[in-house]
């Protein structure tokens, strides 16, 4: 029951908002690369915003529904097709038992989120259903989906109330140049004036080696004062690490908990929605903001979620 995987696609994993509370033990957080799209998909279905869903990367899978349930697809446009008809994004859709979901090919972004009403039936590991592949924990047996896998629904809702109302405008809009707002530090003082100027003025290109661990950027080298090494300390989601090559790496969901390279700045939470959608060739530019400004933007994003949730949970 639930869904069966006919073809797994390039990289399809179960993710929620991540595994918190275990970083002190060296356990990476993992979780959705684009947490905003994950939350929106869940809100559309009346799920808790942090419910687990499928994170689908670039080349989508082929899935057969063995059980009728409402689904919602958000994030990048990977060309989803349900039984031959394009599947609209950013709205709740009833997938009937026997229907097949395919993905024709990438049109925008990098990752789509497919949520199921009631969530997938996956046991949490250390409080989270997120897959962390390197240690083989969480998600579907600690790994990406493979052909032949079956994923059950925990509490399917074939008759979700007010289905017509469960739609919002397309939230992810691809950009020619992604402006990522960053807070300087924790090691901005490890870089020369020139290095900081380079970082904030140049345009960087997303490299092909990027993955869930980090987004590797190509572009002018950022100059350190006395080398790239620091005494290892903690790494936050969005930390921009600059190794001795001078090429920045934005640390993402599967980052290690600690690391020994100087971090020039950290991408703000409100921009993770772009970070999770970057793919090779995309252009990025960094803009300096204060912590206070970043927290105001976080608040605005949360207000939007609250409004959507309130609108969808009206009982008339």
């Amino acid at each position: 029951m639930g869904i069966r995987v006919i073809q797994p696609g390039a990289l399809t994993t179960v993710q929620d908002l991540g595994r918190f509370g275990y970083q002190q033990y060296g356990v990476p957080v993992a979780g959705a690369m684009d947490p905003r799209s994950l939350k929106l998909a869940n809100l559309l279905l009346g799920n808790a915003p942090g419910e687990a869903a499928l994170e689908i990367t670039v080349l989508g899978p082929e899935l057969v529904f063995d059980e009728t349930n409402y689904i919602a697809l958000t994030g990048g446009d990977l060309g989803a097709v349900l039984d031959g008809k394009p599947l609209p994004r950013y709205r709740a859709v009833r997938a009937e038992a026997g229907q097949t979901l395919r993905f024709a090919g990438l049109k925008s972004g990098c990752r789509a989120y497919l949520a199921f009403a009631g969530g997938p039936d996956i046991p949490p590991v250390m409080g989270s259903r997120s897959t962390y592949m390197k240690a083989g924990i969480g998600g579907y047996q600690g790994r990406k989906l493979e052909a032949g896998d079956g994923l059950k629904f925990r509490d399917p809702q074939p008759d979700l109330p007010f289905p017509e109302r469960r739609r919002i405008g397309t939230d992810f809009i691809p950009q020619k140049l992604y402006e990522l707002h960053v807070i300087p530090g924790p090691q901005d003082d490890h870089f020369t004036e020139e290095g900081l100027k380079t970082f904030f003025s140049e345009v960087y290109t997303v490299g092909a080696e990027s993955d869930r661990m980090g987004c590797r950027l190509e572009g002018p080298a950022i100059e350190h004062k006395h080398g790239a090494d620091i005494i290892s300390d903690g790494i936050a989601f969005g930390a921009v690490q600059v190794p001795s090559s001078g090429k920045p790496i934005i640390m993402a969901a599967d980052r290690q908990t600690t690391g020994g390279y100087a971090k020039i700045a950290t991408v703000i939470s409100a921009d993770f929605r772009f970070l999770g959608q970057l793919r090779a060739g995309d252009k990025v530019h960094f803009i300096l903001v204060t912590v206070e400004e970043a927290q105001t933007l976080m608040r605005m994003e949360q207000n939007r979620f609250d409004m959507i949730e309130a609108f969808l949970s009206r009982d008339t």
């Binding site: 509370g21 002190q24 005494i231 290892s232 903690g234 600690t258």
Partner: peptide
Amino acid sequence: ITETVPTYRSLMIHYDPFVIPYG
């Protein structure tokens, strides 16, 4: 404060800005 991570010479402190803002 939601999580703390001790390292060699620093303590990383994760927090919820909606409960306690930066300042």
